[in-house]
Design a protein around this nucleic acid. Structure first.
Ligand code: ZN
Ligand code: ZN
Ligand code: ZN
Ligand code: ZN
Lengths: 169, 169
DNA sequence: TTATGATATGTTATATCATAACATCGTCAA
DNA sequence: TTGACGATGTTATGATATAACATATCATAA
């Protein structure tokens, strides 16, 4: 029932989602990945990652800062932004450009191009990895002579749980 | 040679691009559209639109503000942001989320979902309207039970003119 | 024409997001 | 031990955006 790693069914959160396991899993995977790469997941960075993973909503840097200060009173904006930069570089979180906010990556093991479905009601930011879509964009751009370096794909709308006629699946 | 309206060939700028006609055309079309819709394209809004259209790069609100002050010394941030809001509502400009900046719409006559190809070197922001891509996103999201309200699709990279092996077409 | 309401703009202050610059600390290897 | 490097501390500032309220302008109906 936990579905923490096997996200095959739906990328959205459900009532049965066990977020405790979810976040624990994310932190474990991050530790393993950093160890494997020789990157230092310091306690500060681990705490920031944990705070970004508090939910599946994108969270602003200053919200992270405020929460971080409970365990780390001297924290200042650069404290958080540097940790966020590290986590982004290592693919552990993503930045949501349309929200100026950050969200945990659901598949940090390998670099990928993802698409986000962001619910305007509950804030849930679901990460897709649809290679047909990213591939179509790559081909279309390539045909126009444009060399793609990065894709930002963010859809706003209502997730299944927040739709008016939400017949749960 | 102007290619101001018929963008069929390439959405990118070329050496032969006549931007004088381009911007004049954009302002004319904006006036017509607003008249037809009963919207008031005031002198202030028209000037802001003109400033956004100074080039095909996305331009920040404060850059618009600085330029606007030459003709409108008392302008303040709300002056610009309100005009930008009006222009966005009427589809005359788009906001580029990944740049916190604004760019003129190349086809303001009807609402559309567009994709932007943004050159990291020259800044050119080319607007595509690829219904296959927007449709694929709609279908994929719909299959997951997500009701899409808005699409933000912004690709960063190098445009044909800025690519190292740029063989002009 | 003049009153009236709606829309647009002016004005001041502040909220929100992000980085520059330089100091200090910790770790590890020569 | 010391030097180099990376991480963090610290202060200040830059960049983007909005709240709140005052005033002006415009359209329309009395
Ligand atoms: Zn979870
Ligand atoms: Zn991811
Ligand atoms: Zn032009
Ligand atoms: Zn457009």
């Amino acid at each position: 029932m936990v579905r923490s790693r096997a996200e095959a069914a739906s990328p959205f959160q459900t009532a049965s989602h066990d977020h405790g396991s979810c976040i624990e899993d994310a932190l474990d995977r991050a530790a393993q990945l950093c160890a494997a790469r020789g990157a230092r997941l310091t306690e500060l960075r681990r705490q920031v990652l944990q705070l970004v993973w508090r939910g599946h909503e994108a969270v602003g840097a200053y919200a992270v800062l405020e929460a971080l200060r409970r365990s780390h009173p001297g924290a200042a904006p650069p404290t958080v932004y540097r940790a966020l930069d590290f986590l982004i570089e290592h693919g552990l979180i993503h930045r949501i450009e349309s929200l100026n906010a950050y969200v945990g990556c659901s598949r940090p093991e390998r670099r990928h191009v993802s698409q986000f479905l962001i619910c305007g009601k509950c804030g849930d930011a679901a990460e897709l990895e649809d290679s047909a879509i990213s591939g179509a964009l790559l081909r279309r751009a390539g045909a126009l002579g444009f060399a793609v370096e990065q894709q930002t794909i963010e859809l706003r709308g209502l997730c299944p749980r927040c739709r008016p006629n939400a017949r749960a699946k």
